[in-house]
Amino acid sequence: MKSILQISTYKRGIFHIDPRTKLFLLFVGNVTVFLAPAISYEILMAATILMLGVLCGVYRFSIKMMVFYTGVILIQVVGDLYFPNGIRILVVTFAIFVRKIFPCVMLGGILVSTTRVNEFMSAMNRIHMPKNVLVPLTVMLRYFPMVSEEWVHIKNAMKMRDVSPTLLGFIKNPGQTVECIYVPLLMSASKIADELSIASVTRGIENPKPRTCLQQIKFHTADALCTIYFAALLGLVFFV
């Protein structure tokens, strides 16, 4: 199974960033994209994020994202110049919409995919994030990829029962389609929730003592570099 948060202790890439630094980067990156004054600046931001991805060892994701981002920019530029008016607004606004949220999604994807569950939890413990938010957040990040996996299974099962999981099928037979999507999805979700909670209780998630972690969680040179670089990028916004 492809999971977002890594479980293994397998190390890759040159950089290994502390989860706390990652939070900072995510926040600063988000604010920077928010405030970005021009498209050139947004592209610089995207390039920075992709480079960070390569340094962190997320090669395939970074390359995929680069191709996609370039495609979106191309669509926007070409569409702006050549498309007739009606389609232009539709296509170009969609491209802009994607472009605007893309850097944040890329950054989030890269940072989350290089974080291990245990590392994340103990780092968050150190900054005293309340457990009531930490546990759901962690579970959520772990569960996301499973949703898409479930969806594939459900689609197959629907085909077997001759219910079409497409928009057309929905129009033809709304009640049944909706039921055939929601029921298995929610059912498996609640089952997984039960299993996951039992597993995590067995492994001592309720231990009130401070969490220990095999992985050393410290502020390294890589953290300092990233922090300074992203802060500088944010500072640049105010001077451009």
Binding site: V139, Y143, E206
Partner: peptide, 26 residues
Amino acid sequence: QVQAIKKGMSTKDLVTVGVFSALFFV
């Protein structure tokens, strides 16, 4: 388990909220 953390939510509840938040976001 519920008795162990008398106030508020048990771990099971927290995990359930996490899973359903993911679905809610999707």
